[in-house]
Design a protein around this nucleic acid. Sequence first.
DNA 1: TTGTAGGCGTTATCAG
DNA 2: CTGATAACGCCTACAA
Lengths: 364, 364
Amino acid sequence: MRRTAAAGVALAAAPAALYRSTMANIKDIARHAGVSVATVSRALSTPSLVRPRTIERIEAAIVDLNYEPNHLAAGLRRQRSDNVIVAVPSIYNPFTSAFVQGIENVARANRMRVLLGITEGDVETLNKYTAMIAGKQADGMILLENSLPDVVRRPPAGGKVPPLVAACEYPPDLQLPRVRIDNHEAAALVVSHLAELGHRRIATITGPLAQFMSKDRLAGYRLGLARNRLEFDAALVAEGDFSLQSGHDAMVSLLENGDEFTAVACANDEMALGALSALQQRGIAVPDEMSVVGFDDLRFGAFASPPLTTIHIPTIELGEAAMRLMLDSLLPAEEQPPAREVVLPHRLIVRQSTAAPRRRRRKS
Amino acid sequence: MRRTAAAGVALAAAPAALYRSTMANIKDIARHAGVSVATVSRALSTPSLVRPRTIERIEAAIVDLNYEPNHLAAGLRRQRSDNVIVAVPSIYNPFTSAFVQGIENVARANRMRVLLGITEGDVETLNKYTAMIAGKQADGMILLENSLPDVVRRPPAGGKVPPLVAACEYPPDLQLPRVRIDNHEAAALVVSHLAELGHRRIATITGPLAQFMSKDRLAGYRLGLARNRLEFDAALVAEGDFSLQSGHDAMVSLLENGDEFTAVACANDEMALGALSALQQRGIAVPDEMSVVGFDDLRFGAFASPPLTTIHIPTIELGEAAMRLMLDSLLPAEEQPPAREVVLPHRLIVRQSTAAPRRRRRKS
DNA sequence: TTGTAGGCGTTATCAG
DNA sequence: CTGATAACGCCTACAA
């Protein structure tokens, strides 16, 4: 217990103080309560193993000395940080932030913390975040990304693949716990809704087709066309990047192509809102001359002019489910439940941006 | 080096392996590279103190053994977690998430991580996050909150106030590093813009008046009126809660009160968008019959119908500035710069939701 | 330029 | 129910 280098100092206690942090630690509590550190630790983590009166004394000491357990030390000992990384290209996006909110909800309820991992779409950054798991800065990672960290593709010789949960459309052969909605059916549902209203020429604005999710929604669109015996026309497909501006631009290009169509299914609400603004600028009435459908159910869509018909995604619940899968993955191997994929229900929300085609739109 | 309890086992090396984590540690690297752990540590943190050839050997070992330094152990030793908490009522909000994005930008550039602290407006939750600093889960906290943790008001006897940065309007007597814009002047600017267009009866939709920021913007509105020799009329003030719905509702109530007015200044873009939807539902033309101004410059405002006139706030830059202040606070006391408050410039963005009052609106 | 070794504050094992 | 004591993996005087 004595410092070896305390060379000839009369007062043995004094020098130690110089080297001690200002915060009380578990040893101080033990001394103050007249018990051993082991008992303090137990009182905190497994109170059932400690006599009630002892607990009281310890609690009093904790209050007296204003003690806060050092999480770094506990983590080092337990080999856990109680952090989970959530990797997203950007947080500046209502869909993403709703998802993160969901993750935080259940993380907090389970004494875990969310570490934000913003990648800006860069795989190298994503790899660095992944390395943080090996470095014990986090216990696992939830991916709301288009790309995958390298470890998943080629696991390192010795090491194991860290706890990962996917919340994006990754190739189905990938053996990762995942949460998602049925993008395929949801997109088809949009087309059916429009077809039932009487639309025959239905355009679509997709997300970046390099992303699985975009491809899936486009495939769903085609499925919807087929189900309603409508022909697919590549001229009615415009690619956006999920942003307002790209929705606006895609709408303009669709209009300028000169092909006839009376409705447009957008791969997300942002682009639908962008499309709406393009239509408004050109004086094309929605829904009279053009029906518009979004995807996501952002609250901004409900207050747009006109309020946007869209697919509701339980985004927060998706985040909550993802975090639950993560908690499962963090369980000791023998307790891990086998559940691997969660598919949450979507639903169509019909507002005022869709209606039966009434007037014929003139070519511009 | 030997386990004391290794009682009579012939192979000395074997049992140890059972107790060792699967990950390589600094000792393994040292052994593999034929140097001491101190040298490895130095090679990683202060390469200038190590001979280049030694560094090479160490780097080779790191690659060979797939080594990742244990951040928990390093943190325990250095008494730092390299995490910063960002406390927000909710992340599900474009303004907040832009701010967080800014924080993350500079945190990442300085090898720090952002821990999300969602409080849902609950002070107890905020206090718990604050305690995480004492518990070394984080080194400091950035507040985008309406309330303050208790420690700020009454610092504990022994302990010190942890590193905190404020990014909301707190009472000016509070000695906290802070970032903000000049809400007072910005709100006055909105009113002047409307007055210059010819508006004489200007309503306002405020945020929750329990919040400093809302009070400030309301005071700015009054200042603007005074500057333009317009009379303040309490009947033209409606209180919202910054949400789309509340903006909608406030607009409706303003309209139903029956008082004449030709313009409305909203305390944020969400409420302005809500107000727009209420006007649209009632067939009141914007800007012909009613001018509407927002505050924040969310990108959704630019694509609204009509595009929203608003105050631009450099939100991401605000977050970046906040994180820089935090980094300053984390410096050893002797190096801490005195800079304490950062005020970033706002500006008025005139779009199509404001114009000179043309027609007289009829009472509903 | 490199090595030795103490200690950061916990938890968990083992022994009473 | 409680106590003593190894680790956990790293950093940093201090010594060489």
